[in-house]
């Protein structure tokens, strides 16, 4: 017992140090950008600086946030998962299907609860299955993850579309739908979910042998294999993890939209890659932090919220997201050139 508390204590103190170091020093540029954006919108957009804005921000961020986390984990290993949206939709469809066929208006609260639980378990199991299958295909065939996940995306989307005939499934029970709008001390439940998942993912990637192996694989998979690490298992693990995060995204989606469909959120697929890269994830693998990703997501969401209140179209927002990524990449490319203009300050390069 004492052992457990000890572990818990050391775990918690690490968590705190993690949180403190999680304020990303390495993302000073992004941080500055975020602050400038918030200040700028507060000045120019009436009512931007309000509790309402903050709350709508917290309602809108979780879906994209969770999907981006699902994309980031494979990116760290030098791969990517194009099937995240398809997985999320199918899981949401399955849960919606179970809930609406097994719950009738006459169902008692107990039955409803049991069925919802059953639906969640089924949705989770589906994601687990998809993740394991994807991971195994990638780990054991050695085919580039772009191709494998392009195939699984097509397959999963195809099955969803075939079974639903392209229609949306609605009729989620009240009890479940309410959670989408529920708050804990004023903070939307879905946002709490995002924070928890992000923290767990961050700790797993930074602090566990599995997470470190992911980054190592992203930098050099053969050298990692030679270092007595079961790289295949790690790859299966990382795609399973990605798929499991999709389950949480499916929960958020179902709770927010009160319905599920094969073509919800499809436009988010490429945005998740954009967010990850903006947040400092190396598209070739090996480097990236959850903190940076969250910062990037906050920037994207602030732009979106601000422009919405400004009365600008959603399309313009996406265009500006793309522009921001190009701008940040340019700033990164230019930095050494700009630094080269300044006189060197000691410390000779190799």
């Amino acid at each position: 017992m004492a052992d457990l508390t000890n572990n818990l204590n050391s775990g918690l103190s690490e968590l705190m140090s993690r949180l403190r170091s999680g304020v990303p020093g390495g993302h000073a540029g992004l941080m500055a950008l975020l602050i400038i954006l918030v200040l700028g919108f507060s000045v120019f957009v009436p009512n931007f600086a309000s509790v309402g804005t903050l709350q709508s921000f917290m309602y809108q961020l979780p879906l994209l946030g969770l999907l981006s986390l699902a994309m980031m984990a494979p990116l760290l290993t030098g791969g990517l998962n194009l099937a995240i949206i398809a997985t999320t939709n199918q899981s949401a469809l399955l849960m919606a299907f179970i809930m609406r066929t097994m719950i009738t208006p006459e169902s008692s609260a107990g039955t409803t609860g049991t069925v919802i639980l059953l639906a969640l378990v089924a949705g989770l199991a589906l994601c687990l299955l998809i993740g394991l299958a994807t991971g195994m295909l990638i780990a054991y065939t050695g085919v580039h993850p772009i191709l494998i996940t392009l195939g699984t995306k097509s397959l999963i989307d195809g099955i969803s579309i075939y079974l639903t005939r392209g229609m949306a499934l609605s009729g989620v029970p009240e009890a479940f739908a309410r959670t989408g709008a529920a708050t804990v001390i004023g903070i939307p439940l879905v946002f709490v979910l995002l924070v928890i998942v992000a923290l767990i993912v961050s700790i797993v990637l930074r602090r566990t042998p599995f997470g470190i192996a992911c980054a190592m694989i992203g930098s050099n998979i053969e050298a990692t294999r030679y270092s007595a690490i079961d790289t295949r298992r790690v790859l299966v693990g990382v795609y399973t993890m990605s798929s499991l995060i999709c389950f949480f995204a499916a929960l958020v989606m179902l709770a927010t939209f009160n319905s599920a469909s094969a073509d919800y959120a499809q436009s988010y697929l490429l945005v998740t890659i954009l967010a990850a890269v903006l947040g400092g994830v190396d598209p070739f693998g090996g480097f990236g932090t959850v903190g940076g990703l969250m910062l990037a997501l906050a920037i994207l969401q602030v732009i979106s919220s601000g422009f919405n209140q400004f009365g600008l179209s959603n399309y313009l927002t996406v265009a500006i997201w793309g522009g921001i990524l190009i701008f940040v990449a340019m700033a990164q490319t230019m930095r050494p050139y700009l630094a080269g203009l300044l006189p060197p300050r000691g410390g000779s390069p190799k």
Binding site: D3, L4, N7, R207, P209, I212, N220, A223, T224, I229
Partner: peptide, 24 residues
């Protein structure tokens, strides 16, 4: 593994045995 840190390179083959009760 060239781009990664010296510390993580050294730790690579033994990191499984370095975890605490929480697996961290």
């Amino acid at each position: 593994i060239l781009p990664q840190s010296i510390g993580d390179n050294i730790m690579l083959a033994v990191m499984k045995s370095m975890t605490n009760g929480l697996g961290l």
